[in-house]
């Protein structure tokens, strides 16, 4: 088999749902009065229905990148278009699963998930209760509807965040390490659930992860970030058939090839980051 790890072809010509052009973000660091360049010169196009995973060392600007698409952070250079419109703020077409969960501590699990619905399409009729309940069941939290976030483990809180994001069925799901705090077994179940959900509803997903395996298992494409400053190092098409199961894929030569490649890419990054410190 010939080596097939080549940059994914430029999709810009095809009408893309998310289109990132020359994006740069720098933060004002109040303490030192300097500017910190978080990301620089990022270009990316995401097709409707595509599942893109984002991989990169800690602090390389993955969350920043996603926050710009979410409309939470203003770019200092370049722009982001969603469905052809420049992003000026958050919108009901995009939901976020936050890295730090960001649950409302005064609301129960049920009411936190309901939060994903209540401002967007209103709570007309009674159907919303079923939708909230369905989302809770999907993330495996039935029975915890009346618990408060502080009574849940980190992984459980993360799943509440996931339920809150999917309950309103947004067109685009932005997920920031949504399985980071979940144990290996639950992680496996949730990963399968996410894959099923996405396949069934055709959502467009941007999925940040630290895990190489996860990036390969879930992604149609993998975006590898580098740090200092944060930028895209490469974009790889996985080209693996779906549905994928962790067990069967472990022996797939394509999987192994991708994994080795990503290992090398990230290891180089981690070393570079350590040296530059």
């Amino acid at each position: 088999m010939t080596t097939t790890i080549e940059p994914a072809e430029d999709e810009a010509s095809v009408s893309s749902l998310i289109s990132v052009r020359g994006l740069g973000v720098s933060y004002d660091v109040a303490r030192t009065g300097k500017k910190l360049v978080a990301i620089e010169g990022v270009d990316l196009d995401v097709r409707e229905g595509e599942f893109v995973t984002v991989l990169g060392p800690s602090g390389c600007g993955k969350t920043t990148f996603m926050n710009v698409i979410a409309g939470l952070v203003k770019p200092s250079a370049g722009q982001v278009l969603v469905a052809g419109e420049p992003v000026t703020g958050p919108g009901p077409d995009r939901a976020v699963v936050f890295q730090d969960y960001a649950l409302l501590p005064w609301r129960t699990v049920f009411d936190n998930v309901k939060f994903g619905l209540e401002m967007q399409k209103g709570l007309k009729g009674d159907g919303w209760r079923d939708r909230v309940q369905e989302a809770i069941e999907l993330v495996g939290l039935s029975g915890f509807e009346h618990s408060y976030p502080r009574e849940l483990s980190g992984g459980m809180q993360q799943r509440v965040g996931l339920a809150r994001a999917i309950v309103a069925e947004p067109r685009i799901l932005l997920m920031d390490e949504p399985l980071g705090a979940v144990d290996a077994l639950t992680r496996e179940v949730m990963r399968a659930e996410i894959e099923k959900l996405i396949a069934a509803t055709g959502k467009t997903v941007l999925f940040i992860t630290h895990s190489i395996e996860e990036a390969i298992l879930l992604g149609d494409r993998i975006v590898v970030f580098k740090s200092h400053p944060g930028a895209i190092k490469e974009v790889i098409e996985t080209g693996l058939a779906r549905p994928r199961s962790e067990r069967s894929i472990q022996s797939d030569p394509r999987f192994l090839e991708l994994r080795d490649h990503l290992w090398d890419a990230l290891q180089g990054e981690a070393t570079a980051a350590a040296v530059s410190k």
Partner: peptide
């Protein structure tokens, strides 16, 4: 926490609603 405010904004809570649904209960 700024991330609560972000969550509010992402799920469409703005202006007075942000005060009522996020800031006020967090401060209570």
């Amino acid at each position: 926490s700024p991330s609560l405010v972000s969550a509010g904004r992402v799920f469409g809570v703005n202006g007075v609603y942000l005060g009522w649904k996020v800031i006020f209960p967090a401060t209570l």
